[in-house]
Write a protein that binds this DNA or RNA. Structure first.
Lengths: 289, 289
DNA sequence: TTCACCTATAAATATTTTTTATTAATTATA
DNA sequence: TATAATTAATAAAAAATATTTATAGGTGAA
C-alpha cells in the first residue's frame, strides 16, 4: 500500500473533486480515479458513494474509517520527513519560552558551551503554547516548557526540571498587610501576560473563581516589561517565581486563602524522538538541574 | 513511499539479516537491499551502517529515527486493516468484562434487542486488562471497562457510564463493629480476584500502605465464586459494589480510615474509531445509562 | 437542447519493483 | 591456511504497478 494513494484520498475528500485533486498534485485526473480504485480493491469495499456525480464525493462508512487512519499515517509520515531533514542537516531546533529561558540558560550555559552544544542548537523563541504546537507538528525537536498541566496525551515525553510557584506581585513602594486575601485585591489594577502564556489561564481561573482581578488594564507578552510596570507601581500582577530571580523593587504578596497550581518547568519532546548524541547531551544537561 | 518498504526495514532491523528478511517475506534477497536503498535515496541518508558485513545490521541515528516512525505507521496500517475487515463483514466485536457485564447488560437488554443489536454484537469475554490490550491492538471495536484510572494516553475515547465504589465484604454470619479500621482486619483470611482485574491492584495498594491483608489465601478470576466463598465465611474480600447488586448473605464492612479510589465503569474505544450506525446506537444506549 | 464540465474506462506508456544471475567480501571449518 | 559456505551488493532483465493520453458517457447549467 502506497502512502501516495492515501494522500490522494485525503485530498480528494477535502476538495470533493477528482479533477481538482489531480490538478493539486499535478497529475492527470484518471490517476486519482485509479488511486481510489486501488484502495477499494485492497480493502475490498467501496470507499466513495457514487451517485449523481459532479462534486459529490461522499465517503462510505469504510471510507470514513480509512480517512481517519490515513490522516494519522500521513501525520507520522510528515513527522518522519521533518525529523530526517534535521538529522541530515545536523540541526537541533529547540524551543525557548522567554521566562524559563532567562531563568535556566544561565544555569547551564557553561556546560552547553563546554560540550560544544551552543552552536549546534537553533533556538526558536516563542510562547509555551506555540512551542507545543511546533513540537506537535514536527517543526522543532525539543523545547523548554512551562505549564501547569502535565501533558498526558501520549505524544510527548518530558523531564520535569523544576517545580515553581505562582506569586502575586506588587511594587515595593506599596504597603500591604502581612497576610491578605484575594478579595483584598479587588480594586487593584492588574497587568498580565498575554494569551501565549499559561499565566493568563491562571489569572482567568482566579477571576472566575473569586470574581476579582476584574480590571486588567494592560496585557503584554514581554514579561520584563510587565515586571518593570509593576515595579513602577502601575498595577499588580501574577507571575511564576521563575521570573523573579534577580528583580529589585518588587514584593511578593502573601495571599493566604488561595493556592495556585504548581508551575512545571520541563524539557519536552515527541515520544517518537530518537535523540542523537548531541540532543541526548542537551537532555542530560537540562535534566541534571 | 511504500509501506512495504517500511515493513521490510523493520523486519530487517529485527532479524539483522537481509537473506532471512527476504525469506520471511517470501521474496528474493536483492528485494530487501533495494528496499533499503529506496528509503536511503528518499531520505538522502544512510540508514544502515555497512561495516564488516555478515549479520551486523546496525542502524544509524537516521535509521533509528525512521524505525520509530515506521513502527507507528505500521501499527496504524494494521489497525486500518483490522477495522476495515470488520466493517466489510459488518461485525461489531465488543469486549465484556465479567462483573460489569452482569451489572449492565440487564439494564440495556431490552433496548439492545429492540434495536436489533443483540445479534450484531460479537461478544468477547475477558478481564479488563486483556480487553484494553485487544482494543489497543485492533482486535475489538469497543469494550465495557472497569478501571480506577482514566486512560489518558490519547489512543482511547470513552464515555463514563457509572462511578462505583469499592467495598470490603464479609459473610453475614460474622459480627463486626459498626465502624472499623483497616488494621482491625489484620488477621482475616483474604480472598481476591486475580491479576486480570483491577481489584488486585487495589488490594495490593492497601497491602503496601497498611501492611495488612497479608494472608491472601485464595485467588480466582470468577467473581461469583469469590462471592460464594465470602458468603460461606471462607474469608473477607474487596470488590466493587458493581458486583453486589443481588447478593444475599454478604455484608459490607464500614471501614472509616481508608477511602478507595473510584471505580469507573466506562464504554471505551479507539479514538480513531469511526462508528457505523449500529456501533453508534450501541454507544448511545450505554451512554444514556 | 446544447455546451461545459465531470468521472470512468481502455490502451499505451512510463515508472517502479522484483527477480535472476553474478560478484566480492567475510566467516566457518576441514 | 585453504576451501567451502554464506552474505550483501550490483547489473540487467522481467514483472508488476502507476500514470498518461484519448475518449466515452453522464449531469447540470444556460
Amino acid at each position: 500500500m502506497n502512502v501516495k494513494d492515501l494522500k490522494y484520498f485525503v485530498k480528494l475528500q477535502e476538495l470533493k473533486s477528482y479533477s481538482d485533486t489531480a490538478h493539486y498534485f499535478g497529475v492527470s485526473q484518471p490517476t486519482i480515479t485509479y488511486a481510489v480504485k486501488r484502495l477499494e480493491t485492497e480493502y475490498q469495499t467501496e470507499l466513495i458513494v457514487r451517485k449523481s456525480y459532479a462534486n459529490s464525493v461522499t465517503l462510505t462508512h469504510a471510507g470514513d474509517q480509512i480517512l481517519a487512519h490515513a490522516k494519522k499515517i500521513l501525520r507520522e509520515d510528515h513527522l518522519m520527513q521533518k525529523d530526517l531533514q534535521r538529522i541530515r542537516d545536523s540541526r537541533i531546533k529547540m524551543g525557548f519560552p522567554p521566562i524559563i529561558t532567562n531563568y535556566l540558560v544561565p544555569l547551564v550555559f557553561d556546560q552547553l558551551r563546554d560540550n560544544d552544544l551552543l552552536s549546534r542548537i537553533e533556538p526558536v523563541r516563542s510562547g509555551s503554547k506555540e512551542l507545543l504546537d511546533k513540537l506537535y507538528n514536527g517543526d522543532i525537536d525539543i523545547a523548554l516548557l512551562g505549564t501547569t498541566r502535565i501533558p498526558e496525551n501520549g505524544n510527548f515525553d518530558f523531564n520535569i526540571i523544576k517545580v515553581h510557584n505562582f506569586k502575586i506581585i506588587a511594587s515595593s513602594e506599596r504597603q500591604f498587610p502581612k497576610e491578605l486575601k484575594i478579595r483584598d485585591l479587588q480594586n487593584e489594577d492588574v497587568l498580565i501576560l498575554d494569551e501565549s502564556s499559561v499565566h493568563q489561564l491562571i489569572v482567568n481561573n482566579i477571576i472566575e473563581k473569586y470574581n476579582v482581578f476584574t480590571n486588567v488594564i494592560y496585557q503584554t507578552s514581554d514579561y520584563r516589561l510587565l515586571l518593570d510596570l509593576v515595579k513602577r507601581n502601575k498595577g499588580i500582577s501574577l507571575i511564576t517565581e521563575t521570573a523573579l530571580q534577580v528583580v529589585e523593587g518588587i514584593q511578593e504578596l502573601n495571599v493566604v486563602d488561595e493556592t495556585f497550581p504548581p508551575f512545571y518547568i520541563m524539557l519536552i519532546y515527541r515520544s517518537s524522538l530518537k535523540a542523537g548524541p548531541h540532543t541526548q547531551k542537551i537532555i542530560d544537561i537540562f535534566s541534571e538541574l
